[in-house]
Every structure is written in structure tokens, then in C-alpha cells.
């Protein structure tokens, strides 16, 4: 099956033998973007979380055929050292990662959360951020999520147009 999709702003046209191949492996092994992680392959841990058309998706359980014609964002496309995404900025400020393996998934889930809800309460965070971190960095993560939301609100207030649109 021919799949056309945009990943981190780049167009790709791929010939995929099995259209049910998880998007995770297409991103990791075909496009060589290793930031999206394999943790369980059962949509249980969230390490593979990325965005499809702005929505958080667990890519180990997302057949690539559903991504046809869509925009995919991975941790590599979220931001970079020169221009970190508010979530990445907050993660740097709070020195969140330990082993770091699950962190891209958490950051993608958080980026989705603050794009829908730029002022999440602790309860909102508890409900939406349900990935698993074995190093248990949750304590700092919660602080970083509040900080990321704060940075996001500052960013939105600079560009009032975005407030109406909600998502960027």
C-alpha cells in the first residue's frame, strides 16, 4: 500500500507491504526517527506516544494505514535545542529525566494536554498523563507540566490569534 504522510513537516511517500504495520516501526525504522520508543507494543505504557493531526496517539497500536494523508509529529519535531517546545523547556528547567527512555512519550502526551488545556489542574494531569515511568520521575514531571502550561500561556498571550484557534 502507498502511504503519503507528513512527519515533522516533511512529506513522505512510502510503499508499505503490510498496511497494518504499526506507525511506530515506520517512524523508527523506515524514517529513522528513534525518539519515539517501543516499550510494550500493547498501548499500555505510552512510550510510543506521538501526535497524529495534533492528537496524542500510541503509535505501537496505530496501523500506518490510518496515517495516510495525515500530519505526524514526533519528539524530534516538537522542538530543538535552539527552539525548545514549552514542554521541553520545562523539562530542562526541572531536570525531569532519569534514564530518559519513557520521557519522549510523556512529553508528547503533555504537549497534547496543554494544547487542549493550557491551564491543567492536578486532577487534569492525573487523568491525562497515564504513561508509565519506571524511574518514577512523576514528582518533577508534575511540576514541569504546570511550568510547561505556564510557558504555553505566555506564548499564547503573545499571539492572540492562537487563543481563538485553540490548538496551534
Amino acid at each position: 500500500m502507498k502511504i503519503a504522510l507528513q512527519v515533522n513537516g516533511e512529506h513522505h511517500s512510502l510503499e508499505i507491504a503490510d498496511e497494518n504495520t504499526p506507525l511506530l516501526w515506520v517512524v523508527r525504522d523506515l524514517l529513522n526517527l528513534k525518539g519515539t520508543k517501543f516499550g510494550c507494543g500493547k498501548a499500555a505504557c505510552g512510550a510510543c506516544t506521538l501526535h497524529v493531526d495534533g492528537e496524542a496517539v500510541r503509535s505501537c497500536s496505530y496501523a500506518v494505514k490510518f496515517a495516510d494523508g495525515k500530519k505526524v509529529t514526533t519528539i524530534e519535531g516538537l522542538g530543538n535545542e535552539e527552539a525548545p517546545h514549552p514542554v521541553q523547556q520545562a523539562w530542562l528547567e526541572h531536570v525531569v529525566p532519569q534514564c530518559g527512555y519513557c520521557q519522549p512519550g510523556f512529553m508528547m502526551a503533555t504537549a497534547a494536554l496543554i494544547s487542549k488545556n493550557p491551564k491543567p489542574t492536578d486532577e487534569d494531569i492525573d487523568k491525562n498523563i497515564i504513561n508509565i515511568c519506571r524511574c518514577a520521575t512523576y514528582y518533577r514531571m508534575r511540576k514541569a507540566i504546570h511550568r510547561a502550561a505556564e510557558l504555553e500561556r505566555q506564548r499564547l498571550s503573545l499571539t492572540p490569534k492562537n487563543i481563538e484557534n485553540g490548538e496551534e
Partner: peptide, 21 residues
Amino acid sequence: VPRVDLADKVFGAPIFGMDAT
């Protein structure tokens, strides 16, 4: 001192065994 591996881990660098190619 901030972790020396902080940026790699925040920006998704391919540093783990699973990422080797």
C-alpha cells in the same frame, strides 16, 4: 549541576540500545 545527558533525553536523541542501527 544539570545532568550531562539532559538535552539528549529531552530532544529524543538516539542514545539507547534499542536505537542502535
